[in-house]
Simulated scan of single mutants.
Amino acid sequence: MAPKRPAETDPRATLRGGLPDRYLTPEDIAALLSVPLETVYAWRKKRAGPPGFRIGKHLRYDPTAVHAWINTLTEAERDAA
């Protein structure tokens, strides 16, 4: 059996090397940002987190939109300093 590539085991490793070639799950977002899964769902409810969308009953996030959302947070921090 071939060993797993780091990108398959850790979504953060994928994003460091470039955007993943798939939509992210809430679990991926929680792992990427090192926050509890409940936080990701609370952000969605408050419309405070990265924009997500539904495919049937499944919630997904576009990696490009997640990256843009993170950039807005870091820019806001920079502007506040």
Rank of each mutant, 00 (worst) to 15 (best):
A2R: 05
A2M: 05
A2N: 07
P3K: 11
P3F: 09
K4F: 11
K4D: 12
K4N: 11
A7Y: 12
E8I: 00
E8D: 15
T9K: 12
T9P: 00
D10G: 07
R12C: 03
A13Y: 04
A13V: 07
A13T: 03
T14F: 10
L15E: 01
R16K: 13
R16C: 05
G18Y: 02
G18Q: 04
G18E: 07
L19T: 03
L19Q: 09
P20H: 11
P20A: 07
P20C: 04
D21N: 13
D21K: 09
R22V: 11
R22Q: 11
L24K: 03
L24F: 00
T25W: 03
T25A: 09
P26W: 01
P26V: 02
E27N: 11
E27G: 13
E27D: 14
D28F: 07
A30M: 06
A31M: 09
A31G: 02
A31Y: 01
L32V: 05
L33A: 08
L33P: 08
S34R: 15
V35P: 10
V35F: 05
P36C: 06
P36S: 09
L37F: 10
E38F: 02
E38V: 12
T39N: 10
T39A: 14
T39L: 11
V40E: 02
V40K: 04
V40A: 07
Y41L: 13
W43T: 06
W43D: 10
R44L: 11
R44N: 08
R44E: 14
K45M: 11
R47Q: 15
R47P: 00
A48Q: 15
A48P: 04
G49Y: 00
G49M: 03
P50T: 01
P50W: 03
P51C: 01
P51L: 05
G52I: 00
G52R: 00
G52C: 01
F53Q: 04
F53A: 06
R54F: 08
R54Y: 13
I55V: 15
I55W: 06
G56M: 06
G56V: 06
G56E: 03
G56C: 10
K57N: 12
K57L: 10
K57G: 13
H58A: 14
L59G: 01
R60T: 02
R60W: 00
Y61A: 01
Y61S: 00
D62S: 08
D62T: 01
P63Q: 01
P63S: 10
T64M: 03
A65H: 08
V66C: 05
V66K: 03
H67D: 14
A68V: 10
A68H: 08
W69L: 07
I70Y: 08
I70V: 14
I70W: 04
N71L: 12
N71V: 10
T72V: 10
L73I: 07
L73G: 06
T74M: 12
T74C: 07
E75D: 15
E75L: 14
E75Y: 09
E75K: 11
A76F: 04
A76Y: 04
A76I: 03
E77A: 15
R78V: 02
R78N: 08
R78C: 03
D79P: 00
A80L: 15
A80F: 13
A80N: 10
A81C: 11
A81T: 09
A81Q: 14
